[in-house]
Simulated scan of single mutants.
Amino acid sequence: MTAAPQPKPAAAPPSRARRAARPLLALAAVAIPTLYVAAVDPNTPGHYPVCPVLAATGWWCPGCGGLRAVHALAHGDLATAAHDNLLVVVLAVVAGVLWSGWLWAALTGGRAPRVRFGVPQAVLLLLVLAVFMVYRNLPVGAALAPPVV
């Protein structure tokens, strides 16, 4: 008669440090280029390439002023960041809230916030980008255009 197989011991749950590794690596992936933009001022010509949309059309694209906004945010200047690119500031806040929820879930063992991004969300995002681009290039939306350097 053979002995019944012994059940395998349950694996220990991952440690807090191991659970927090992914959110912290994501933070590092964003922080390293942000530190570079904080140190190398995009308001000084010659450090970064010119936007191809601006060069080709003369229109501010949705990303124009984004590096300047990140530079201003890194230096704690929210008003300048919002003037340079309001969309970047809003997206930074949204990303920060989502990242905080992800880190909190990792530290507490809870569920990370789920973000669903399908076709309807992609269409909405493209629509927001298009409206932002057109509006900031109209005289009425000139306050949303970054300063000319």
Rank of each mutant, 00 (worst) to 15 (best):
T44K: 05
H75S: 07
L124Y: 01
V89G: 03
T57W: 09
V89K: 03
A12E: 12
L54I: 01
T80F: 03
A74K: 06
W59R: 06
L27R: 00
P13V: 03
P14S: 06
S100G: 11
V119F: 11
L124W: 07
A28L: 15
W99A: 00
V70P: 01
V97L: 13
L98K: 00
C64E: 07
R114Y: 02
P120E: 10
V50G: 04
A17W: 14
A74Y: 08
V115Q: 08
C51V: 01
A130N: 10
W60R: 08
A38E: 10
L125F: 13
A122Q: 12
L98C: 09
P13E: 11
G101C: 04
V128H: 02
Q121D: 05
P45Y: 02
V93C: 11
S100I: 00
W102E: 13
V70T: 15
G65C: 09
P62R: 14
L24F: 08
C64R: 12
A26T: 08
S100T: 11
L103M: 06
G96R: 09
H75F: 08
V149E: 02
K8F: 02
A10I: 07
V149G: 08
V97N: 09
V148Y: 09
R114V: 05
P14A: 09
T108V: 01
P52N: 07
T80S: 13
Y48V: 03
P23C: 12
P45I: 14
R114C: 00
V123L: 15
P9V: 11
L73K: 05
F117Q: 12
A17Y: 11
L54H: 15
C61S: 11
C51G: 06
W99Y: 03
P45L: 11
V123H: 07
R136H: 04
P113T: 13
W59H: 11
W104T: 10
W102K: 02
L78V: 13
L98H: 12
W60L: 00
P9L: 09
C61I: 01
P14H: 01
H83S: 14
P52C: 02
L98E: 01
A31D: 10
G96W: 08
V128T: 10
P13G: 08
L138G: 10
W102G: 08
P42E: 01
T57E: 05
A95C: 07
A130C: 05
F132A: 01
R116Q: 13
Y48N: 02
M1R: 13
H71V: 04
H71L: 07
R68C: 09
F132W: 12
A56F: 08
A17T: 14
V40N: 00
V30F: 15
P120D: 06
L91D: 00
G118Y: 04
L86N: 07
L126G: 15
L125H: 05
L144N: 10
H71D: 04
V131T: 13
V88N: 08
V131I: 15
D41A: 05
L107M: 15
V140P: 05
Y135W: 15
H47A: 14
T57Q: 03
P120H: 11
A74L: 10
W104Y: 06
R116N: 06
V37A: 00
D41E: 06
L35E: 08
A92Y: 00
V37H: 01
W104R: 14
H47Y: 08
T44M: 04
